[in-house]
């Protein structure tokens, strides 16, 4: 039956994207440092690097979609690769956020005399955790429910309902980002207001960044679902997006409990 290939693995073709992605990352890093130190041309190099990086991401993932959906290279065994790869990626993300939480608890469990020996530091007016922060924990959880709805709809073969569910997922994510932006603008402290501001905005900011990534990921899944790429037998991309979304959910839960609630009262 298989005349051309006697194994179920995918031997990828040579691709320019690894090197172009590396060059983009290099330009972004160097440009970022130059920009932050007010070197001439720093902003230009940073922008060029980011554009290069985003372009590489677009074309590389476009190629993966072509290989998997349109050329059928992703057999059962091949699907295991991205599956485990993505799980390991999420594990590394967990460790990254652990460091941010650790920075916060290190500063708050034994506050130094320089900030008045108390937490929150003297002079910092904190946000009421039961107002916008609580709402903005509920919204990602609702979005997580919507993505679970989408998953079951895909497995049940209800393709239209899955698109609706993903629209709900993305809408809730956008509402979250909107409220988070509002909270940032109204916050009585900034990132340069003591270690409290630093750890607060570092942790919530990186979480917000991950929400934006997850939103884009879910939008892509919604488009692919609409186009009929995701079937109940093969929807690795959607599964990865759903795991990622649940991960971002859990991080928000920890943020709320440890930084907004415990750290803000």
């Amino acid at each position: 039956m298989i005349e051309s290939q006697r194994h179920s693995y995918h031997l990828v073709d040579p691709s320019p994207w690894p090197i172009s992605g590396s060059l983009g990352a290099l330009a972004t890093t160097v440009g970022g440092v130059m920009y932050m130190h007010s070197f001439q041309g720093g902003a230009t190099l940073l922008s060029l690097g980011l554009i290069f990086l985003l372009y590489t991401m677009f074309v590389w993932w476009r190629d993966v979609l072509r290989e998997s959906t349109f050329e059928g290279h992703h057999t059962k065994v091949v699907q295991l690769g991205p599956r485990y790869g993505f799980i390991l990626f999420i594990v590394s993300e967990v460790m990254f956020f652990f460091a941010l939480f650790r920075a916060s608890s290190h500063s708050s469990l034994a506050p130094t005399v320089e900030i008045g020996g108390i937490w929150p530091p003297k002079g910092i007016a904190v946000l009421d955790p039961w107002e916008i922060p609580f709402l903005n924990t509920l919204i990602p959880l609702s979005s997580g429910a919507a993505v679970t709805w989408a998953h079951h709809a895909i497995l049940a073969g209800k393709e239209k309902r899955a698109v609706y569910a993903l629209v709900a997922t993305v809408s809730l994510a956008l509402v979250f980002t909107g409220f988070q932006g509002m909270e940032y603008y109204q916050a009585p402290f900034t990132i340069s207001d003591s270690i409290y501001g630093s750890t607060f905005f570092l942790a919530t900011g990186f979480h917000g960044f991950h929400v934006i990534i997850g939103t884009i990921f879910s939008i892509i899944c919604g488009i692919r679902q609409y186009l009929g790429h995701l079937t109940k037998e093969h929807h690795v991309g959607f599964e990865a997006a759903a795991w990622y979304w649940h991960f971002v959910d859990v991080v928000r839960l920890f943020l709320f409990v440890s930084i907004y609630w415990w750290g803000g009262i």
Binding site: Q5, G72, H73, K76
Partner: peptide, 16 residues
């Protein structure tokens, strides 16, 4: 009947 859009080796594998 199982996966209408399957193609290439994925399709061959499913068929087998």
């Amino acid at each position: 009947d199982v996966m209408p859009i399957a193609t290439g080796h994925e399709r061959e594998e499913l068929e087998a």
